[in-house]
Design a binder for these strands. Structure first.
Lengths: 138, 138
DNA sequence: CTGAATCCGGCCCGATACTG
DNA sequence: CAGTATCGGGCCGGATTCAG
């Protein structure tokens, strides 16, 4: 169950195979919307339009594509109810649920440190602009 | 220190501010190379060419850009030694080190489940192609 | 050795219109 | 309601070249 067996499995340079798989899967995880959708579904089964409403800023196209990818990776299930009007519900698979742990960890980290990052960014930008040639800052 | 205060901070829909910050920062985390670089630097200080060699597949441009972004976000430090030939060393900041936890969690998750995902993908693809019109598979 | 700058192809993604 | 199809702009990212 637990993510870590106690050993340090996080050794990027040692295992090339894992390393390549990481790139691949991380790009799915790191995908802007995937994490949010998984997090949403962590709260329970939802239908398409419900996800659309709760995930603001996402286009219909992106929601569809994201869900397709997640389905393909075995992280979510897609259930179509042959009614009219049609209803489609999405839910996390057991595998998908195991992703919630790491995702929440990341979420928490961001919650905690977003201020630090914002501050660092301002400091960095300020430092850059004073080093940069004062080319008509106007 | 700890990532979680004990409460469930991972509530995507509740806080819009955090939610937007998440998108922003996650796109950095989810950035293909950022995670790998941070993981590399988790092992200790490294210089530019060293990172380049150990991170296979990365172009010089991307390494530079990635490092710049990480520096701007206050996650890594950049130290230039005024020698000839020049030497530049990168290291994680304290803030950067706090990221290692969540990253390793994710890394471990991938290590554990990459097979499941690969399998799910094959199954999905197989299912798709039999539903699809057999248009000259040849 | 480290890094900046330029060029340029490819994809990502949003907007729109159309189907069942 | 849920989804596909198409078009088009924009940004990502690799290869190359030049500089300190």
């Amino acid at each position: 169950m637990a993510a870590s067996t106690g050993r340090q499995t996080a050794m990027p340079t040692s295992e090339h195979g894992t390393c390549l798989a990481m790139s691949d899967i991380l790009s799915r995880i790191g995908d802007k919307w995937s994490v949010m959708i998984v997090a949403q579904l962590g709260q329970g089964t939802m239908r398409f339009s419900e996800l659309r409403r709760q995930t603001d800023g996402i286009s219909q196209r992106m929601l569809t594509l994201t869900l397709r990818n997640l389905e393909r990776d075995g992280l979510v299930t897609r259930t179509v109810y042959p009614e009219v009007p049609p209803r489609v519900e999405y839910a996390l698979t057991p595998l998908g649920k195991t992703l919630l742990g790491p995702i929440y960890a990341l979420w928490d980290w961001v919650s905690e440190h977003q201020d630090d990052i914002a501050e660092a960014r301002m400091a960095y930008d300020a430092g850059q602009q004073e080093e940069a040639p004062p080319r008509k800052i106007a």
